[in-house]
């Protein structure tokens, strides 16, 4: 400790420097800051642990095969969440299929292809704003556009006889949630593209590559882990949404499974909410069980994406 201290306070030619290293106080500040950051993570983890332990204690005894394979029932001991679980998976898969290509595509266009003019800037501001719009607003939009205009009694049906969404269906729910998470995916795609050093692009252009070749062969492979992280966050938000789905008319009691994208549906958060607000204590425990199942689905979904990301990351 002493050696760097003395060398710090003396210039190479031996004169005494006015600069006081004061290492003790600097290390102290360092220590205090470290303690603060450490405390914040402990508090965050503690809260998470309390929540998870509480839910596990309430819900774990109720998780069994019947719980996963039964439809909702008025009798807590017979009630299950099969229709909600199936609905959640249908919706999330559809959301991923719709939102991932659209969001990544829009992000690439805005970051790599669009010229920097007022139009692009207007789009940028709007996308950033959309990321902060409350989810219920997307629900209202979905109700009007996907249920009313594109549904079985809608304007498009009267015009052409085509019923796209089937009304209050999985497709409607997925489109609504896809709209909700698109801004997040676009913004994170742009962030990760921006993090790729410009020298790589310039090197590509210098070798005579077209813009598409540069993006496709050089930039995207480097940016894809970041893009996937953004997508994971976006889908994690979508899986917990209740309000927009209730607004578009997702059901609460349904005792058959979805057959196609136009089927009526319910999702886990709606089922959980319904059970939590029931008077009977047993339903509250079922809700805890539902939360565990939702957490597991979320973890499975995210860890798949994380594994995939790590795999991709190693190659580049």
């Amino acid at each position: 400790m002493n050696t760097p201290n003395t060398s710090d306070s003396n210039t190479p030619d031996g004169k005494v420097n006015l600069f006081q290293a004061d290492m003790a106080s600097r290390y102290r500040t360092d220590g205090i800051f470290q303690a603060i950051t450490w405390t914040s993570i402990v508090i965050a983890l503690l809260i998470l642990a309390v929540l998870i332990i509480d839910v596990l204690m309430d819900g774990l005894p109720f998780i069994n095969w019947n719980f996963l394979s039964n439809f909702p029932s008025r009798k807590p001991e017979q009630a299950g969440l099969l229709s909600a679980l199936a609905g959640t998976i249908w919706v999330m898969v559809t959301v991923a299929v719709i939102a991932f290509p659209l969001g990544v595509g829009a992000g690439i266009f805005l970051e790599e292809f669009a010229e920097d003019n007022w139009f692009a800037r207007a789009i940028e501001i709007n996308i950033n704003n959309l990321a902060g719009v409350p989810s219920i607003i997307y629900g209202l939009l979905g109700l009007q556009v996907f249920v009313r205009l594109l549904g079985p009694n809608g304007w498009l049906f009267e015009l052409t006889g085509i019923d796209i969404t089937g009304g209050r269906s999985i497709l409607t729910g997925a489109l609504t949630l896809a709209l909700l998470v698109l801004p997040i995916i676009i913004v994170s795609t742009r962030e990760s593209l921006r993090a790729v050093p410009d020298s790589l692009r310039l090197a590509g252009f210098a070798l005579g590559a077209t813009r598409w070749q540069v993006v496709h062969n050089q930039i995207l492979p480097i940016a894809i882990p970041g893009i996937l992280t953004g997508t994971i966050l976006a889908l994690s938000r979508a899986i917990g949404e209740t309000a927009p789905l209730i607004t578009i008319g997702a059901l609460t009691f349904i005792s058959f499974l979805p057959e196609n994208l136009q089927s009526p549906f319910t999702v886990l958060p709606i089922q959980i909410y319904n059970w939590v607000s029931r008077p009977q204590k047993d339903f509250h425990d079922l809700a805890a069980g539902g939360i565990i199942v939702l957490l597991v689905v979320l973890l499975v979904m995210n860890s798949t994406a994380v594994l995939l990301r790590n795999k991709l990351q190693k190659r580049f």
Partner: peptide
Amino acid sequence: SFLAGVLALTLAACGGGE
């Protein structure tokens, strides 16, 4: 590998939960 990755993501993200 990138293309395969995207495809796999779409399938796996779905398949994993399914």
